[in-house]
């Protein structure tokens, strides 16, 4: 199973390394940013069983922080991204402390409400530029040497960030810490009775997820040289839920596949304008009703079944 996983990840990394020779790199960078965002979200829903409906607050706020520090304070790119990630982690700590006091559906409502609070803060705060957002964020040379004004070069930087985040999540899931998280997902009272301080585990997972969502958002701000209110809205929180659901909650590659599908869909459907919302809703409903395991989950289940019948 595990060697299987690492083979898949290597294949994915190899495919992504050659992808920009065939596909427009800016599109790929968008996919990677959202894929990292979805992977971070999946860490919570897939492995701790916590449905956060407010992850846009980490994604969007980190975008603002990195955009502002790089543009106005003149931070180097890598420090700006790091700043966005750290602020998101801190925000995650505060939001997590409040949200983990409730379970299940309430957790979803609380995170949604907290994210809406961050949204209103971003609307009113001076540094976010209100409706205009932060525009033309400079792409300064990374570590002072790597010129990222070229999309092609930047792509490999984003790919490195994505893979680093992805591996952190992968390691987390397969660590003893990750095992405890899964135990909490399966049966929280039993995990408590076994002596685990469940709240600490949940909080740590929440902060980790928030930090990685922030990393994704901060990177996106550098790639598109833009940080706007769109990234902090509840629609964005819904989008990352949709990506993860479509790809497969609780699967390693699902969030990446889901992000690729949804971003590609948005690109091709842009011409339909108003219909995008309806189509997203229809995908949501169809997935929940018919393919709850998502694309990757259904393929995995099919393969497992095929293998099972082959043995017999």
């Amino acid at each position: 199973m595990k060697s299987n996983d690492s083979l898949m990840i290597l294949a994915l990394a190899a495919a992504l390394a050659v992808a920009p020779f065939f596909i427009y790199p800016v599109f790929l960078m968008k996919v990677l940013c959202f894929a990292l965002f979805a992977c971070a979200f999946n860490l919570l829903i897939g492995y701790v069983g916590l449905l956060s409906f407010g992850h846009a607050m980490f994604f969007g706020f980190a975008a603002y922080v990195s955009g502002y520090t790089v543009k106005t304070w003149g931070f180097p790119t890598e420090i700006g991204i790091l700043a966005g990630m750290l602020v998101s982690a801190a925000l995650g700590l505060v939001a997590g402390l409040i949200a983990i006091r409730r379970q299940g559906i309430y957790f979803a409502m609380v995170t949604l409400a907290l994210a809406q609070m961050v949204f209103f803060f971003c609307v009113q705060a001076k540094f976010t530029g209100g409706e205009d957002g932060i525009q033309s964020i400079p792409r300064r040379a990374l570590f002072g040497v790597i010129d990222i004004r070229n999309d092609f070069t930047l792509y490999y930087v984003v790919l490195a960030i994505f893979l680093a985040g992805f591996l952190v999540i992968y390691r987390t899931i397969h660590s003893p810490f990750g095992q405890v998280l899964k135990a909490i997902r399966e049966n929280e009272p039993r995990a408590i009775s076994l002596g685990y301080k469940v709240d600490n585990y949940k909080l740590l997972a929440f902060v980790l997820s928030a930090a990685l969502s922030g990393l994704a958002g901060a990177t996106k701000a550098i790639v598109f040289q833009l940080a706007t209110l769109t990234d902090v809205t509840w629609q964005m929180s819904g989008e990352v839920v949709l990506m993860t659901l479509v790809g497969g909650m609780g699967t390693v590659l699902g969030p990446f596949v889901g992000a690729a599908i949804i971003i590609a869909m948005q690109n091709y459907l842009a011409q339909f304008g108003e219909w995008v919302l309806v189509i997203q809703g229809v995908i949501f409903v169809t997935t929940v009703m018919l393919f709850r395991r998502g694309v990757v989950g259904e393929i995995g289940a099919y393969l497992a079944k095929a293998r099972g019948t082959a043995k017999e």
């Binding site: 819904g238 839920v241 659901l245 309806v278 997203q280 809703g281 229809v282 409903v285």
Partner: peptide, 12 residues
């Protein structure tokens, strides 16, 4: 999740 999807459809 289902009712969220439905909300998107109706609103859209």
């Amino acid at each position: 999740l289902l009712t969220f999807g439905l909300a998107l459809i109706f609103e859209g």
